[in-house]
Design a protein around this nucleic acid. Sequence first.
DNA 1: GGGATATTTCGGTGCCCGCCGAACCGACCG
DNA 2: CGGTCGGTTCGGCGGGCACCGAAATATCCC
Lengths: 285, 285
Amino acid sequence: MTVTPALTSAQTTPTQTTPTAARTTPASGRTTPAPVPTPRVQTTPTPDSISAPDLASLAGLLADRTRASICLALLDGRAWTATELAQHAGVARSTVTGHLHQLVAGGLLEEARQGRHRYVRLSGPATAEMIESLASHAPLRTTPVRSLRDANRRRALAHARSCYDHLAGAVAVAITDAMTERALLAWDYGPSLSEDGKAWLRDMGIDDHRPLGSCRAHIRTCLDWTERRPHLAGAVGAALFQRALDAGWVTRRGTTRGVELTDAGRAVFRTQLGLSDEVLSPPQG
Amino acid sequence: MTVTPALTSAQTTPTQTTPTAARTTPASGRTTPAPVPTPRVQTTPTPDSISAPDLASLAGLLADRTRASICLALLDGRAWTATELAQHAGVARSTVTGHLHQLVAGGLLEEARQGRHRYVRLSGPATAEMIESLASHAPLRTTPVRSLRDANRRRALAHARSCYDHLAGAVAVAITDAMTERALLAWDYGPSLSEDGKAWLRDMGIDDHRPLGSCRAHIRTCLDWTERRPHLAGAVGAALFQRALDAGWVTRRGTTRGVELTDAGRAVFRTQLGLSDEVLSPPQG
DNA sequence: GGGATATTTCGGTGCCCGCCGAACCGACCG
DNA sequence: CGGTCGGTTCGGCGGGCACCGAAATATCCC
Protein backbone atom coordinates (compact mmCIF):
# COMPACT_ATOMS: atom_id res chain seq x y z
CA MET A 1 0.00 0.00 0.00
CA THR A 2 2.81 2.35 0.82
CA VAL A 3 4.44 4.07 -2.11
CA THR A 4 7.65 2.35 -2.97
CA PRO A 5 10.48 4.40 -4.38
CA ALA A 6 12.36 1.17 -4.91
CA LEU A 7 11.72 1.05 -8.64
CA THR A 8 13.88 3.94 -9.64
CA SER A 9 16.97 4.11 -7.51
CA ALA A 10 18.26 3.17 -4.13
CA GLN A 11 18.64 6.66 -2.78
CA THR A 12 15.53 8.30 -1.48
CA THR A 13 15.28 12.07 -1.16
CA PRO A 14 18.96 12.82 -1.10
CA THR A 15 18.56 16.54 -0.47
CA GLN A 16 16.52 16.16 2.71
CA THR A 17 18.65 16.97 5.72
CA THR A 18 18.00 14.44 8.46
CA PRO A 19 14.53 15.53 9.50
CA THR A 20 14.23 13.51 12.68
CA ALA A 21 17.19 14.53 14.72
CA ALA A 22 16.99 18.27 14.32
CA ARG A 23 13.39 18.43 15.41
CA THR A 24 13.23 16.81 18.80
CA THR A 25 14.39 20.02 20.35
CA PRO A 26 12.30 22.23 18.17
CA ALA A 27 14.29 24.53 15.93
CA SER A 28 17.22 26.54 17.13
CA GLY A 29 19.60 24.47 19.18
CA ARG A 30 19.61 26.94 22.01
CA THR A 31 17.95 25.06 24.83
CA THR A 32 19.71 21.73 25.17
CA PRO A 33 23.37 22.10 24.29
CA ALA A 34 24.24 18.43 24.56
CA PRO A 35 21.59 15.92 23.38
CA VAL A 36 22.69 12.86 25.42
CA PRO A 37 19.83 10.58 24.41
CA THR A 38 19.50 8.62 27.67
CA PRO A 39 21.47 5.45 26.88
CA ARG A 40 18.79 3.03 28.00
CA VAL A 41 20.13 -0.40 27.09
CA GLN A 42 17.14 -2.58 27.70
CA THR A 43 16.21 -5.82 26.05
CA THR A 44 12.81 -4.96 24.73
CA PRO A 45 10.25 -7.69 24.28
CA THR A 46 8.35 -5.22 22.09
CA PRO A 47 9.54 -3.75 18.81
CA ASP A 48 11.98 -1.04 19.79
CA SER A 49 10.93 1.26 17.01
CA ILE A 50 7.50 2.24 15.86
CA SER A 51 6.59 3.52 12.45
CA ALA A 52 4.22 6.39 11.83
CA PRO A 53 3.22 7.70 8.43
CA ASP A 54 5.31 10.64 7.33
CA LEU A 55 2.36 12.66 6.17
CA ALA A 56 4.25 15.92 5.81
CA SER A 57 6.80 14.67 3.32
CA LEU A 58 4.14 13.21 1.08
CA ALA A 59 1.93 16.27 1.29
CA GLY A 60 4.97 18.43 0.67
CA LEU A 61 5.33 16.85 -2.73
CA LEU A 62 1.89 18.11 -3.68
CA ALA A 63 2.14 21.40 -1.83
CA ASP A 64 3.84 23.27 -4.63
CA ARG A 65 1.69 24.81 -7.30
CA THR A 66 3.87 23.57 -10.12
CA ARG A 67 4.13 20.04 -8.81
CA ALA A 68 0.39 19.96 -8.17
CA SER A 69 -0.22 21.12 -11.71
CA ILE A 70 2.00 18.31 -12.96
CA CYS A 71 0.18 15.69 -10.93
CA LEU A 72 -3.23 16.93 -12.00
CA ALA A 73 -2.13 16.83 -15.62
CA LEU A 74 -0.88 13.28 -15.20
CA LEU A 75 -4.24 12.30 -13.75
CA ASP A 76 -5.39 11.73 -17.30
CA GLY A 77 -3.42 8.49 -17.18
CA ARG A 78 -1.08 9.23 -20.05
CA ALA A 79 2.69 9.58 -20.01
CA TRP A 80 4.03 13.10 -20.54
CA THR A 81 7.47 14.40 -21.39
CA ALA A 82 9.25 16.94 -19.26
CA THR A 83 8.91 19.66 -21.89
CA GLU A 84 5.17 19.09 -22.26
CA LEU A 85 4.78 19.42 -18.52
CA ALA A 86 6.91 22.55 -18.42
CA GLN A 87 4.71 24.12 -21.06
CA HIS A 88 1.58 23.01 -19.24
CA ALA A 89 2.73 24.40 -15.92
CA GLY A 90 4.25 27.54 -17.37
CA VAL A 91 7.74 27.17 -15.93
CA ALA A 92 11.20 26.56 -17.31
CA ARG A 93 12.29 23.08 -18.33
CA SER A 94 15.03 23.07 -15.76
CA THR A 95 12.50 23.74 -13.07
CA VAL A 96 10.36 20.82 -14.14
CA THR A 97 13.38 18.53 -14.16
CA GLY A 98 13.92 19.19 -10.49
CA HIS A 99 10.28 18.67 -9.65
CA LEU A 100 10.13 15.40 -11.56
CA HIS A 101 13.11 14.14 -9.63
CA GLN A 102 11.34 14.82 -6.38
CA LEU A 103 8.09 13.24 -7.49
CA VAL A 104 9.83 10.13 -8.77
CA ALA A 105 11.96 9.83 -5.63
CA GLY A 106 8.79 10.19 -3.58
CA GLY A 107 7.18 7.31 -5.42
CA LEU A 108 4.35 9.27 -6.95
CA LEU A 109 5.68 9.08 -10.49
CA GLU A 110 7.37 6.48 -12.62
CA GLU A 111 9.68 7.35 -15.46
CA ALA A 112 10.46 5.60 -18.71
CA ARG A 113 13.38 6.75 -20.82
CA GLN A 114 13.12 6.43 -24.56
CA GLY A 115 16.05 7.84 -26.44
CA ARG A 116 16.31 11.47 -25.55
CA HIS A 117 12.79 11.55 -24.17
CA ARG A 118 11.85 11.06 -20.57
CA TYR A 119 8.28 9.99 -20.11
CA VAL A 120 6.69 10.18 -16.69
CA ARG A 121 3.35 8.90 -15.50
CA LEU A 122 1.63 8.26 -12.21
CA SER A 123 3.04 5.22 -10.47
CA GLY A 124 -0.25 3.34 -10.26
CA PRO A 125 -3.98 3.39 -9.65
CA ALA A 126 -3.50 3.76 -5.91
CA THR A 127 -1.50 6.92 -6.45
CA ALA A 128 -4.13 8.27 -8.80
CA GLU A 129 -6.85 7.56 -6.28
CA MET A 130 -4.97 9.34 -3.54
CA ILE A 131 -4.42 12.48 -5.60
CA GLU A 132 -8.00 12.23 -6.73
CA SER A 133 -9.20 12.05 -3.14
CA LEU A 134 -7.18 15.08 -2.20
CA ALA A 135 -8.28 17.05 -5.25
CA SER A 136 -11.94 16.40 -4.61
CA HIS A 137 -11.59 18.02 -1.20
CA ALA A 138 -9.55 20.97 -2.38
CA PRO A 139 -11.10 24.39 -2.75
CA LEU A 140 -11.85 25.41 -6.30
CA ARG A 141 -9.75 28.08 -7.88
CA THR A 142 -11.45 29.75 -10.81
CA THR A 143 -9.35 30.74 -13.75
CA PRO A 144 -10.70 32.85 -16.58
CA VAL A 145 -11.10 31.46 -20.05
CA ARG A 146 -8.51 33.11 -22.19
CA SER A 147 -9.58 32.45 -25.76
CA LEU A 148 -12.20 30.85 -27.94
CA ARG A 149 -9.88 27.92 -28.59
CA ASP A 150 -9.63 27.55 -24.87
CA ALA A 151 -13.38 27.58 -24.44
CA ASN A 152 -13.88 24.95 -27.11
CA ARG A 153 -11.26 22.70 -25.62
CA ARG A 154 -12.74 23.01 -22.16
CA ARG A 155 -16.18 22.22 -23.50
CA ALA A 156 -14.91 19.12 -25.21
CA LEU A 157 -13.20 18.00 -22.02
CA ALA A 158 -16.37 18.58 -20.04
CA HIS A 159 -18.14 16.25 -22.46
CA ALA A 160 -15.83 13.25 -22.28
CA ARG A 161 -12.28 12.76 -21.10
CA SER A 162 -10.09 10.20 -19.45
CA CYS A 163 -9.58 10.33 -15.70
CA TYR A 164 -6.52 8.18 -15.14
CA ASP A 165 -7.83 4.80 -16.24
CA HIS A 166 -11.53 5.42 -16.60
CA LEU A 167 -13.96 7.74 -18.32
CA ALA A 168 -15.02 11.11 -16.95
CA GLY A 169 -17.17 14.00 -18.04
CA ALA A 170 -20.84 14.40 -18.75
CA VAL A 171 -20.97 11.10 -20.63
CA ALA A 172 -19.43 9.20 -17.73
CA VAL A 173 -21.86 10.72 -15.26
CA ALA A 174 -24.76 9.86 -17.56
CA ILE A 175 -23.56 6.28 -17.81
CA THR A 176 -23.35 6.02 -14.05
CA ASP A 177 -26.79 7.52 -13.60
CA ALA A 178 -28.30 5.20 -16.17
CA MET A 179 -26.70 2.18 -14.55
CA THR A 180 -28.16 3.24 -11.23
CA GLU A 181 -31.58 3.82 -12.76
CA ARG A 182 -31.59 0.36 -14.28
CA ALA A 183 -30.54 -1.20 -10.99
CA LEU A 184 -27.24 -2.38 -12.38
CA LEU A 185 -25.56 -0.35 -9.69
CA ALA A 186 -26.64 -0.40 -6.05
CA TRP A 187 -25.78 2.28 -3.53
CA ASP A 188 -26.97 0.76 -0.26
CA TYR A 189 -23.54 0.59 1.32
CA GLY A 190 -21.29 2.41 -1.09
CA PRO A 191 -21.45 1.60 -4.77
CA SER A 192 -21.73 -2.06 -5.69
CA LEU A 193 -22.75 -4.11 -8.69
CA SER A 194 -26.05 -5.91 -8.55
CA GLU A 195 -26.47 -9.36 -10.05
CA ASP A 196 -28.03 -7.69 -13.06
CA GLY A 197 -25.03 -5.40 -13.18
CA LYS A 198 -22.61 -8.28 -13.26
CA ALA A 199 -24.60 -9.93 -16.02
CA TRP A 200 -24.71 -6.66 -17.93
CA LEU A 201 -20.96 -6.31 -17.73
CA ARG A 202 -20.60 -9.82 -19.13
CA ASP A 203 -22.92 -8.91 -21.96
CA MET A 204 -20.78 -5.90 -22.67
CA GLY A 205 -17.78 -8.16 -23.04
CA ILE A 206 -16.19 -7.64 -19.64
CA ASP A 207 -15.57 -10.70 -17.52
CA ASP A 208 -16.57 -9.84 -14.00
CA HIS A 209 -14.10 -12.05 -12.21
CA ARG A 210 -11.89 -9.48 -10.56
CA PRO A 211 -10.94 -7.49 -13.58
CA LEU A 212 -7.36 -6.29 -13.32
CA GLY A 213 -5.64 -5.66 -10.01
CA SER A 214 -6.32 -7.86 -7.06
CA CYS A 215 -6.07 -5.89 -3.85
CA ARG A 216 -7.44 -2.62 -5.12
CA ALA A 217 -11.03 -1.50 -4.61
CA HIS A 218 -12.92 -2.99 -7.47
CA ILE A 219 -15.68 -0.50 -7.70
CA ARG A 220 -15.70 3.02 -6.48
CA THR A 221 -16.80 6.42 -7.58
CA CYS A 222 -14.85 9.48 -8.45
CA LEU A 223 -16.15 13.00 -8.16
CA ASP A 224 -16.37 14.53 -11.60
CA TRP A 225 -14.67 17.95 -11.57
CA THR A 226 -16.87 19.45 -14.23
CA GLU A 227 -20.17 17.84 -13.25
CA ARG A 228 -19.54 17.77 -9.49
CA ARG A 229 -21.31 14.43 -9.41
CA PRO A 230 -19.89 10.93 -9.09
CA HIS A 231 -18.93 8.71 -11.99
CA LEU A 232 -17.86 5.09 -12.06
CA ALA A 233 -14.22 4.38 -11.21
CA GLY A 234 -12.08 1.66 -9.71
CA ALA A 235 -11.29 -1.55 -11.52
CA VAL A 236 -14.80 -1.81 -12.94
CA GLY A 237 -14.62 1.69 -14.34
CA ALA A 238 -11.19 0.97 -15.77
CA ALA A 239 -12.37 -2.26 -17.39
CA LEU A 240 -15.34 -0.52 -18.92
CA PHE A 241 -13.15 2.22 -20.34
CA GLN A 242 -10.65 -0.27 -21.68
CA ARG A 243 -13.41 -2.29 -23.29
CA ALA A 244 -14.80 0.88 -24.89
CA LEU A 245 -11.39 1.70 -26.32
CA ASP A 246 -10.81 -1.84 -27.58
CA ALA A 247 -14.24 -2.08 -29.15
CA GLY A 248 -13.92 1.31 -30.81
CA TRP A 249 -16.78 2.87 -28.89
CA VAL A 250 -14.55 5.77 -27.93
CA THR A 251 -11.26 7.11 -29.24
CA ARG A 252 -8.68 9.36 -27.69
CA ARG A 253 -8.44 12.82 -29.17
CA GLY A 254 -4.89 12.79 -30.42
CA THR A 255 -2.50 13.04 -27.52
CA THR A 256 -4.78 14.98 -25.21
CA ARG A 257 -6.92 13.66 -22.43
CA GLY A 258 -9.98 14.37 -24.54
CA VAL A 259 -12.14 11.42 -25.56
CA GLU A 260 -14.58 11.20 -28.44
CA LEU A 261 -17.53 8.91 -28.81
CA THR A 262 -17.76 7.11 -32.13
CA ASP A 263 -21.02 6.39 -33.90
CA ALA A 264 -20.70 2.80 -32.77
CA GLY A 265 -20.23 3.98 -29.21
CA ARG A 266 -23.26 6.22 -29.36
CA ALA A 267 -25.31 3.31 -30.66
CA VAL A 268 -24.12 1.00 -27.90
CA PHE A 269 -24.83 3.42 -25.07
CA ARG A 270 -28.16 4.43 -26.59
CA THR A 271 -29.43 0.88 -26.88
CA GLN A 272 -27.77 -0.55 -23.78
CA LEU A 273 -28.43 2.25 -21.32
CA GLY A 274 -30.98 4.44 -23.06
CA LEU A 275 -28.75 7.50 -23.04
CA SER A 276 -30.23 10.40 -24.97
CA ASP A 277 -28.59 11.85 -28.05
CA GLU A 278 -28.29 15.08 -26.14
CA VAL A 279 -25.63 13.79 -23.80
CA LEU A 280 -24.06 11.49 -26.38
CA SER A 281 -23.38 14.06 -29.07
CA PRO A 282 -20.39 16.34 -28.74
CA PRO A 283 -21.09 19.92 -27.64
CA GLN A 284 -22.51 21.99 -30.52
CA GLY A 285 -20.72 20.07 -33.28
CA MET B 1 -17.78 17.88 -0.96
CA THR B 2 -15.40 20.78 -1.14
CA VAL B 3 -14.06 22.08 2.11
CA THR B 4 -15.83 25.25 3.07
CA PRO B 5 -13.94 27.89 4.98
CA ALA B 6 -17.21 29.74 5.35
CA LEU B 7 -17.82 28.55 8.89
CA THR B 8 -15.15 30.54 10.59
CA SER B 9 -14.76 33.91 8.99
CA ALA B 10 -15.11 35.72 5.70
CA GLN B 11 -11.43 36.16 5.05
CA THR B 12 -9.62 33.16 3.70
CA THR B 13 -5.85 32.93 3.92
CA PRO B 14 -5.21 36.62 4.28
CA THR B 15 -1.45 36.36 3.97
CA GLN B 16 -1.51 34.76 0.53
CA THR B 17 -0.46 37.30 -2.08
CA THR B 18 -2.68 36.96 -5.17
CA PRO B 19 -1.43 33.66 -6.46
CA THR B 20 -3.00 33.73 -9.90
CA ALA B 21 -1.77 36.96 -11.37
CA ALA B 22 1.85 36.70 -10.42
CA ARG B 23 2.26 33.28 -11.96
CA THR B 24 1.10 33.61 -15.56
CA THR B 25 4.42 35.09 -16.48
CA PRO B 26 6.41 32.80 -14.29
CA ALA B 27 8.26 34.57 -11.54
CA SER B 28 10.38 37.62 -12.09
CA GLY B 29 8.56 40.22 -14.11
CA ARG B 30 11.38 40.60 -16.58
CA THR B 31 9.98 39.27 -19.81
CA THR B 32 6.64 40.99 -20.36
CA PRO B 33 6.76 44.49 -18.93
CA ALA B 34 3.11 45.29 -19.60
CA PRO B 35 0.59 42.47 -19.10
CA VAL B 36 -2.23 43.77 -21.34
CA PRO B 37 -4.55 40.79 -20.94
CA THR B 38 -6.12 40.86 -24.42
CA PRO B 39 -9.40 42.68 -23.75
CA ARG B 40 -11.63 40.17 -25.47
CA VAL B 41 -15.17 41.33 -24.83
CA GLN B 42 -17.18 38.44 -26.11
CA THR B 43 -20.59 37.28 -25.05
CA THR B 44 -19.76 33.74 -24.09
CA PRO B 45 -22.36 31.03 -24.42
CA THR B 46 -20.09 28.96 -22.19
CA PRO B 47 -19.09 29.73 -18.62
CA ASP B 48 -16.34 32.31 -18.89
CA SER B 49 -14.43 30.93 -15.98
CA ILE B 50 -13.52 27.39 -15.17
CA SER B 51 -12.72 26.04 -11.77
CA ALA B 52 -9.90 23.65 -11.07
CA PRO B 53 -9.08 22.16 -7.68
CA ASP B 54 -6.39 24.07 -5.86
CA LEU B 55 -4.49 21.00 -4.85
CA ALA B 56 -1.38 22.85 -3.74
CA SER B 57 -3.04 24.99 -1.12
CA LEU B 58 -4.74 22.03 0.49
CA ALA B 59 -1.63 19.88 0.40
CA GLY B 60 0.33 22.82 1.76
CA LEU B 61 -1.73 22.67 4.92
CA LEU B 62 -0.51 19.13 5.53
CA ALA B 63 3.01 19.69 4.25
CA ASP B 64 4.40 20.98 7.51
CA ARG B 65 5.60 18.47 10.03
CA THR B 66 3.92 20.22 12.91
CA ARG B 67 0.58 20.62 11.16
CA ALA B 68 0.72 17.02 9.97
CA SER B 69 1.36 15.90 13.51
CA ILE B 70 -1.65 17.90 14.64
CA CYS B 71 -3.90 16.36 12.02
CA LEU B 72 -2.72 12.85 12.77
CA ALA B 73 -3.37 13.41 16.45
CA LEU B 74 -6.84 14.68 15.68
CA LEU B 75 -7.51 11.55 13.65
CA ASP B 76 -8.56 9.90 16.88
CA GLY B 77 -11.80 11.83 16.58
CA ARG B 78 -11.56 13.73 19.83
CA ALA B 79 -11.31 17.48 20.39
CA TRP B 80 -7.94 18.77 21.60
CA THR B 81 -6.88 22.06 23.11
CA ALA B 82 -4.08 24.16 21.70
CA THR B 83 -1.82 23.44 24.62
CA GLU B 84 -2.31 19.69 24.35
CA LEU B 85 -1.44 19.85 20.69
CA ALA B 86 1.61 22.01 21.35
CA GLN B 87 2.84 19.45 23.84
CA HIS B 88 2.11 16.61 21.44
CA ALA B 89 3.92 18.26 18.55
CA GLY B 90 6.78 19.57 20.63
CA VAL B 91 6.56 23.24 19.67
CA ALA B 92 5.67 26.46 21.44
CA ARG B 93 2.05 27.29 22.13
CA SER B 94 2.23 30.41 20.03
CA THR B 95 3.38 28.35 17.08
CA VAL B 96 0.43 26.02 17.38
CA THR B 97 -1.96 28.96 17.49
CA GLY B 98 -0.81 30.07 14.07
CA HIS B 99 -1.07 26.58 12.67
CA LEU B 100 -4.56 26.11 14.01
CA HIS B 101 -5.63 29.33 12.36
CA GLN B 102 -4.43 28.06 9.03
CA LEU B 103 -6.05 24.67 9.42
CA VAL B 104 -9.36 26.18 10.47
CA ALA B 105 -9.26 28.72 7.66
CA GLY B 106 -8.52 25.91 5.24
CA GLY B 107 -11.59 24.04 6.42
CA LEU B 108 -9.79 21.01 7.78
CA LEU B 109 -10.53 21.82 11.40
CA GLU B 110 -13.47 23.16 13.35
CA GLU B 111 -13.08 25.04 16.57
CA ALA B 112 -15.31 25.31 19.59
CA ARG B 113 -14.57 27.94 22.22
CA GLN B 114 -15.40 27.12 25.79
CA GLY B 115 -14.31 29.80 28.18
CA ARG B 116 -10.60 30.18 27.95
CA HIS B 117 -10.25 26.88 26.14
CA ARG B 118 -10.19 26.44 22.43
CA TYR B 119 -11.09 22.98 21.34
CA VAL B 120 -10.36 21.92 17.78
CA ARG B 121 -11.37 18.78 15.96
CA LEU B 122 -11.47 17.55 12.39
CA SER B 123 -14.26 19.18 10.46
CA GLY B 124 -15.99 15.95 9.49
CA PRO B 125 -15.77 12.35 8.34
CA ALA B 126 -14.88 13.39 4.81
CA THR B 127 -11.88 15.30 6.10
CA ALA B 128 -10.82 12.37 8.22
CA GLU B 129 -11.08 10.04 5.25
CA MET B 130 -8.97 12.32 3.10
CA ILE B 131 -6.19 12.59 5.65
CA GLU B 132 -6.49 8.88 6.20
CA SER B 133 -6.11 8.21 2.49
CA LEU B 134 -3.03 10.38 2.32
CA ALA B 135 -1.52 8.84 5.43
CA SER B 136 -1.95 5.32 4.18
CA HIS B 137 0.13 6.18 1.14
CA ALA B 138 2.81 8.05 3.02
CA PRO B 139 6.20 6.45 3.65
CA LEU B 140 6.72 5.19 7.15
CA ARG B 141 9.06 7.04 9.41
CA THR B 142 10.38 4.93 12.24
CA THR B 143 10.86 6.60 15.56
CA PRO B 144 12.61 4.87 18.43
CA VAL B 145 10.75 3.93 21.55
CA ARG B 146 11.97 6.19 24.30
CA SER B 147 10.85 4.58 27.53
CA LEU B 148 9.03 1.66 29.01
CA ARG B 149 5.95 3.82 29.56
CA ASP B 150 6.14 4.64 25.89
CA ALA B 151 6.32 1.00 24.91
CA ASN B 152 3.36 0.09 27.08
CA ARG B 153 1.27 2.89 25.68
CA ARG B 154 2.10 1.95 22.13
CA ARG B 155 1.26 -1.67 22.80
CA ALA B 156 -2.10 -0.69 24.21
CA LEU B 157 -2.79 1.47 21.18
CA ALA B 158 -1.85 -1.36 18.86
CA HIS B 159 -4.45 -3.50 20.61
CA ALA B 160 -7.48 -1.21 20.34
CA ARG B 161 -7.89 2.47 19.66
CA SER B 162 -10.24 4.88 18.01
CA CYS B 163 -9.60 5.96 14.43
CA TYR B 164 -11.73 9.06 14.04
CA ASP B 165 -15.20 7.55 14.42
CA HIS B 166 -14.53 3.85 14.31
CA LEU B 167 -12.41 1.21 15.98
CA ALA B 168 -8.85 0.40 14.95
CA GLY B 169 -6.09 -1.87 16.12
CA ALA B 170 -5.69 -5.62 16.32
CA VAL B 171 -9.22 -6.05 17.66
CA ALA B 172 -10.74 -4.09 14.77
CA VAL B 173 -8.82 -6.11 12.21
CA ALA B 174 -9.91 -9.34 13.90
CA ILE B 175 -13.53 -8.20 13.82
CA THR B 176 -13.26 -7.42 10.13
CA ASP B 177 -11.63 -10.75 9.40
CA ALA B 178 -14.24 -12.65 11.35
CA MET B 179 -17.06 -10.84 9.58
CA THR B 180 -15.49 -11.77 6.27
CA GLU B 181 -15.04 -15.38 7.34
CA ARG B 182 -18.68 -15.66 8.33
CA ALA B 183 -19.80 -14.12 5.04
CA LEU B 184 -21.23 -11.07 6.73
CA LEU B 185 -18.89 -8.99 4.64
CA ALA B 186 -18.41 -9.51 0.90
CA TRP B 187 -15.40 -8.29 -1.05
CA ASP B 188 -16.41 -9.01 -4.63
CA TYR B 189 -16.45 -5.39 -5.70
CA GLY B 190 -15.08 -3.50 -2.77
CA PRO B 191 -16.37 -4.19 0.71
CA SER B 192 -20.11 -4.60 1.04
CA LEU B 193 -22.53 -6.08 3.53
CA SER B 194 -24.23 -9.34 2.63
CA GLU B 195 -27.84 -9.98 3.56
CA ASP B 196 -26.56 -11.98 6.51
CA GLY B 197 -24.40 -9.05 7.41
CA LYS B 198 -27.32 -6.65 7.44
CA ALA B 199 -29.29 -9.05 9.61
CA TRP B 200 -26.31 -9.43 11.92
CA LEU B 201 -26.04 -5.69 12.34
CA ARG B 202 -29.73 -5.57 13.27
CA ASP B 203 -29.14 -8.28 15.81
CA MET B 204 -26.33 -6.24 17.26
CA GLY B 205 -28.71 -3.36 17.74
CA ILE B 206 -27.75 -1.26 14.73
CA ASP B 207 -30.50 -0.34 12.32
CA ASP B 208 -29.13 -0.81 8.85
CA HIS B 209 -31.12 1.89 7.16
CA ARG B 210 -28.40 4.34 6.23
CA PRO B 211 -26.89 4.89 9.62
CA LEU B 212 -25.71 8.46 9.97
CA GLY B 213 -24.66 10.64 7.04
CA SER B 214 -26.41 10.38 3.74
CA CYS B 215 -23.98 11.14 0.93
CA ARG B 216 -20.91 9.59 2.47
CA ALA B 217 -19.64 6.12 1.63
CA HIS B 218 -21.49 3.82 3.95
CA ILE B 219 -19.01 1.06 4.14
CA ARG B 220 -15.34 1.26 3.43
CA THR B 221 -12.12 0.01 4.85
CA CYS B 222 -9.27 1.83 6.42
CA LEU B 223 -5.70 0.61 6.46
CA ASP B 224 -4.67 -0.12 10.02
CA TRP B 225 -1.34 1.57 10.74
CA THR B 226 -0.16 -0.98 13.22
CA GLU B 227 -1.53 -4.10 11.56
CA ARG B 228 -1.09 -2.92 7.96
CA ARG B 229 -4.33 -4.67 7.12
CA PRO B 230 -7.79 -3.24 6.52
CA HIS B 231 -10.41 -2.73 9.16
CA LEU B 232 -14.02 -1.70 8.89
CA ALA B 233 -14.72 2.01 8.48
CA GLY B 234 -17.26 4.33 6.92
CA ALA B 235 -20.70 4.85 8.36
CA VAL B 236 -21.09 1.16 9.19
CA GLY B 237 -17.83 1.14 11.09
CA ALA B 238 -18.82 4.30 12.91
CA ALA B 239 -22.21 2.90 13.84
CA LEU B 240 -20.65 -0.28 15.16
CA PHE B 241 -18.19 1.68 17.28
CA GLN B 242 -20.90 3.95 18.61
CA ARG B 243 -23.05 0.97 19.49
CA ALA B 244 -20.12 -0.63 21.27
CA LEU B 245 -19.60 2.51 23.31
CA ASP B 246 -23.28 2.87 24.13
CA ALA B 247 -23.64 -0.75 25.11
CA GLY B 248 -20.54 -0.67 27.26
CA TRP B 249 -18.64 -3.21 25.20
CA VAL B 250 -15.71 -0.84 25.01
CA THR B 251 -14.66 2.24 26.98
CA ARG B 252 -12.26 5.01 26.16
CA ARG B 253 -9.04 5.04 28.15
CA GLY B 254 -9.34 8.36 29.87
CA THR B 255 -8.75 11.17 27.45
CA THR B 256 -6.47 9.29 25.10
CA ARG B 257 -7.34 7.57 21.89
CA GLY B 258 -6.84 4.25 23.58
CA VAL B 259 -9.83 1.95 23.85
CA GLU B 260 -10.39 -0.90 26.27
CA LEU B 261 -12.64 -3.90 25.87
CA THR B 262 -14.86 -4.63 28.82
CA ASP B 263 -15.74 -8.12 29.97
CA ALA B 264 -19.15 -7.65 28.38
CA GLY B 265 -17.49 -6.65 25.13
CA ARG B 266 -15.22 -9.65 25.16
CA ALA B 267 -18.22 -11.89 25.71
CA VAL B 268 -20.15 -10.32 22.85
CA PHE B 269 -17.33 -10.58 20.32
CA ARG B 270 -16.47 -14.08 21.47
CA THR B 271 -19.98 -15.42 21.04
CA GLN B 272 -21.01 -13.31 18.07
CA LEU B 273 -17.88 -13.58 15.96
CA GLY B 274 -15.88 -16.33 17.59
CA LEU B 275 -12.91 -14.13 18.36
CA SER B 276 -10.28 -15.86 20.45
CA ASP B 277 -9.32 -14.69 23.92
CA GLU B 278 -5.86 -14.10 22.55
CA VAL B 279 -6.88 -11.12 20.46
CA LEU B 280 -9.55 -9.97 22.89
CA SER B 281 -7.42 -9.69 25.99
CA PRO B 282 -5.21 -6.67 26.46
CA PRO B 283 -1.49 -7.14 25.77
CA GLN B 284 0.19 -9.00 28.64
CA GLY B 285 -1.99 -7.60 31.39
C1' DG C 1 -10.38 42.37 42.97
C1' DG C 2 -6.10 39.59 42.49
C1' DG C 3 -3.58 35.83 40.83
C1' DA C 4 -3.15 31.85 37.84
C1' DT C 5 -3.91 29.86 33.43
C1' DA C 6 -5.06 29.53 28.31
C1' DT C 7 -4.53 31.86 24.33
C1' DT C 8 -3.25 35.44 21.09
C1' DT C 9 -0.51 39.04 18.88
C1' DC C 10 3.76 40.89 17.34
C1' DG C 11 8.53 41.59 15.89
C1' DG C 12 12.47 39.41 14.44
C1' DT C 13 15.40 35.77 12.63
C1' DG C 14 16.97 32.25 9.90
C1' DC C 15 16.35 28.75 6.64
C1' DC C 16 14.31 26.26 3.10
C1' DC C 17 12.97 26.06 -1.53
C1' DG C 18 11.13 27.40 -6.06
C1' DC C 19 12.65 29.90 -9.83
C1' DC C 20 15.58 31.23 -13.76
C1' DG C 21 19.37 31.43 -17.26
C1' DA C 22 23.42 29.62 -19.02
C1' DA C 23 26.24 25.96 -19.97
C1' DC C 24 26.53 21.18 -20.92
C1' DC C 25 25.44 16.42 -22.50
C1' DG C 26 23.36 13.04 -25.32
C1' DA C 27 20.27 11.53 -28.99
C1' DC C 28 18.40 12.08 -33.39
C1' DC C 29 18.47 13.70 -38.26
C1' DG C 30 19.91 15.15 -42.55
C1' DC D 1 29.66 15.40 -39.23
C1' DG D 2 27.19 19.65 -37.93
C1' DG D 3 22.57 21.32 -36.56
C1' DT D 4 18.68 20.68 -33.64
C1' DC D 5 16.25 19.34 -29.84
C1' DG D 6 15.16 17.24 -25.21
C1' DG D 7 16.98 16.96 -20.89
C1' DT D 8 20.20 17.98 -17.04
C1' DT D 9 23.28 20.49 -13.87
C1' DC D 10 24.77 24.50 -11.47
C1' DG D 11 25.02 29.10 -9.22
C1' DG D 12 22.50 32.64 -7.55
C1' DC D 13 18.55 35.16 -6.19
C1' DG D 14 14.40 36.14 -3.79
C1' DG D 15 10.35 35.26 -1.12
C1' DG D 16 7.72 32.85 1.93
C1' DC D 17 7.28 30.69 6.24
C1' DA D 18 8.05 28.16 10.64
C1' DC D 19 9.93 29.24 14.74
C1' DC D 20 10.56 31.63 19.27
C1' DG D 21 10.08 34.88 23.25
C1' DA D 22 7.85 38.52 25.30
C1' DA D 23 4.07 41.25 25.96
C1' DA D 24 -0.94 41.64 25.83
C1' DT D 25 -5.64 39.82 26.49
C1' DA D 26 -9.30 36.96 28.17
C1' DT D 27 -11.17 33.79 31.41
C1' DC D 28 -11.62 31.37 35.61
C1' DC D 29 -10.95 30.56 40.57
C1' DC D 30 -10.53 32.18 45.16
